[in-house]
Design a binder for these strands. Sequence first.
RNA 1: GGACCUGUGGUGCAGCUUGGAGUGCACGCCGGCCUGUCAAGCCGGAGGCCGCGGGUUCAAAUCCCGUCAGGUCCGCCA
Length: 623
Amino acid sequence: MAGTFVPNRYRDTYCGSLRRADIGRQVRLAGWLAAKRDHGGLLFVDLRDPVGPDADLPATGEGMAGTTRGDHRACIAQLVSHPSDAFFEALGRLRPESVISVTGEVVARPPENINPKLLTGEVEVRLASLEVLSSAGVIPFPVEGEGEVGEEARLSFRYLDMRRGPLAERLAKRARFCQLVRDHLSSRGFLEVQTPILTASSPEGARDYLVPSRLYPGEFYALPQAPQQFKQLLMTGGVERYFQIAPCFRDEASRADRSPGEFYQIDLEMAFAEQEDVFGEVELLFSQLVSQLSTKTASPAPFPRIAYAEALSRYGTDKPDLRFGLEVADLTGSLAGRTELPMFAEAPKNGQAIRALRVPRGNERPRSWFDAFTEAAKSAAMAGSWLALPGGGEPRGPLSRKLTADEAATVARTVGAEPGDAVLTCVGPSAGSGASVPLGQVRSSLGRELGLADANQLAFCWVVDFPMYERNPDTGAWDFSHNPFSMPQGGLEALQSKEPGEILAWQYDAVCNGIELSSGAVRNHLPEVMEKAFAIAGYSRERIERSFPALWNAFHYGAPPHAGIAPGVDRLLMLLEDQPNIREVIAFPLNQMARDLLMGAPAPVTPAQLAELHLQVVPPRRA
RNA sequence: GGACCUGUGGUGCAGCUUGGAGUGCACGCCGGCCUGUCAAGCCGGAGGCCGCGGGUUCAAAUCCCGUCAGGUCCGCCA
């Protein structure tokens, strides 16, 4: 425990630090009134220290391994008052969560009254004086105790929620996380640079948050969706390695793992660097974070590299959970030429694949479960079917009637199915978001249902070789499939000679346990390559110049090759803390609908404020 | 933009399927008793637009429609 505690007029000792050795000391304590036990002729009060991230409290104690400062058992001391005390009645009238400062003598508890649940349980403080620093009203939900509290109340009274311990611990963990990122990356030669919050709207990507300009009527700043262009400009400016724990603002719908409005990334970029250089640095960083902040086991570096196309075909997703097997198998080769069943026989002729997934103990599953799968495949315009393998008897399910015994055996053997299992099959496009995808969704849910994934493991991997372009399903035009600033693999030559759909980008994701943590790329720093790359996506040179003037110009004055990535802070913390919801690792989160229930944002402003900004509100038309 | 789940004293829930008096549980709150509790105990009490609006019905927390709020997912998130 570091010694940052400074005695002052409110306190000279932490409640949670009192031990047998303190017996006889006169102490001054301050904190929240956690509980009262009023015996009429005797009053016990539990006084609780702050449990916030800056509290310099004992982290562990003998016989209570694992106790942390977020644990109320570790930061409570019992105070005792008698009717003869002048303040006895006043103390008895105080409600829980009132803040007081007291003095008294640390005394031993009789052996039969020792409380083993408290680190301070061998002693108590016989009060000599009471000062009420802040008396609390009736609190809206219990701060002490284990009971669940609705999230709406927790967000509306976030400061009470923070006193509850678990949230306080996560805030402390987040602080250590950020400290570690700064220390580690600084030691690796990364320069921390802050970039503007008020910047220009960029036409690509998510919806911007806009800030109206008072000085320039009708003109707007935008909050950065990420410091993407700034970090590339830093590279061009000769910064060798850059990082920032950067706020990012996107006006998009939220999810359990996606905060609305704003979130943080460990934004980093390296000059004269390629993909593997970035991977090496991030593997070092992630390994540090996991070993310092978690008891989980992380994949040893180097993390597995999996091509995007391979991830889609083997796992049916571009963010595979590698903690368990149960891979999607390909039956196209083993079945296609050797079955009468049209659905399978025709598949290869149409560029389709036959994929299959073993369902452990799937024979026990109800018909409705299989129907849900075939419906899901159907809604994705693919053909799903299934086969169940009872322990003793004949195979059953739609495929059993259509496949010969020999074919059914081939299917079972290829996916490694045993008696009692079932096999799901799907016929669909062999590449991209094809036949494996519906199976991959089942694979994920099986992982959860059957407990296949080790909760104590962090299975990192790199998904590489993302396609540069994808067809817009509505217009048929080529769109950038990810970051338009990525360098195409093969450079200008690839852009000129290949089908856009065949071109891969130096674009990569860091994935862990089925969660996308981060996206990055080797950047395109060559204007002529950029011009061609954007032309394929339908952007003229003029439009590049207009949309990204700073980058476009900068790259004409000597820009180093560079590459980078931006791991999400909030998602990494969710992973390290096993939290299912991103709001649990954020001090003051917006709710799902991007409302701040605590501060009441957003809110209307005065007509005068609007006038000053040259704005007029046009309410949406109501039905 | 769409789908689903939830909404019942201050908090957390049960009741809803199969309509019959705001019926219940735990915590909290108020008052009283109580000198060794530690989530104190015992006795008593207060507190409800069953989110809101409409409909069906002799009768609605319960069934139907709409709406608002909270959550989860799809779209979206270069």
